[in-house]
Amino acid sequence: MLKLKEHSVLPGFNLALGFTLLYLSLIVLIPLSSLFFKTATSGWDNFWEIVTNERVLASLRVTFFSSLIAAALNAIFGLVIAWVLTRYTFPGKRLIDALVDLPFALPTAVAGITLAMLYAPNGWIGHYFAEYDIKIAYTPLGIVIALTFIGLPFVVRTVQPVLEEMESEAEEAAACLGASRWNTVLRVIFPSIYPALLTGFALAFARSIGEYGSVIFIAGNMPFISEIAPLLIVAKLEQYDYAGATAIALVMLLISFMLLLIINGLQGWSNRRGMK
C-alpha cells in the first residue's frame, strides 16, 4: 500500500511540509542545481580540461592535505581536551568548556587576520620561528594553522557527550578483572569512543575542505604552493571565468557530498554503539 503519510489528529501537516519544501527548493535546491546545469551546458570535455589543469590539481592537493593534517591534529588534541573536560576538575573549567566553541562563533575573517598577524615573521609567535628560518604565515604551514583553529571544536564536541554518558561500571568491571588503568583505557574506553572520534575527525575535515575566510589572509596564496581551491574559484569568478569556477566548485561539491554520506554513516554507527 502506497501511503504518503500516517493519519494524525494534529493539524498543520500540509501547511508545514508545503512551506518547508517550497523554502528548501527556492533557497537551496534550485540554486545548487544551477551548478550542475552550468557544467552540463559548458560541456563535459571542457569540465575535464579545467579540473585536470595543473594549477587546479595543485590547489585541490593543498586543500586536501592541509585539511587532513589539521583534522588529525584536532583528533589527537581534541580527544585530550574532551577527556580533561569530562574527567578532571580544575579551576576555570566551565569557562574553558564554553570557550571551546569560539571558532564556531568567531567570524572567519577575524580569525584569519588575527592568525596571520600572530604567525607572520614579525608576529608574536612567528618571530620565534623566524629565528630558525621557519616561515609559518604565507606558507602551507599557515593554512594548517588556520584550519586547525576552525576545526578545533568538532572532535571535542562529538567525543565529550560519549565520554560523559559512558557507564563507569564498565571501567570498574575492567579494574575488578585486574586490568591496569592503561589497559582499561585502551581496551574498554577507547573502543567505545572510537566512532565518535572518527565522526568528529570527518566533520572537522569536511569543514576545512570548504574553508575560505580564515585561510586567505595567512596562506600567502601562491599558485601551486599555498593556493587553496576555494580561493581559485574566487579568482576565476573575478575574471568572469564562470565555466572554470563552476567546474572546480562542482568537484568540491561532490567531495562534500561524499563526506556528508560518510559522516551520516559514522554517526549511525556511533549512535548504535551508544545504544547498548
Binding site: V28, I30, P31, L32, S34, L35, K38, T108, A206, I209, G210, E211, Y212, G213, P230, L231, I233, V234, L237, Y242, A245, T246, A249, M252, L253, S256, F257, L259, L260
Partner: peptide, 17 residues
C-alpha cells in the same frame, strides 16, 4: 545540505542564477 557546501560555492551558485 548548506552546511556541506563551501561558503565560496554558496555565494557562487547565486551568481550563476
Amino acid at each position: 545540505l548548506p552546511f556541506a557546501v563551501s561558503p565560496v560555492v554558496s555565494g557562487m551558485i547565486y551568481v550563476l542564477l
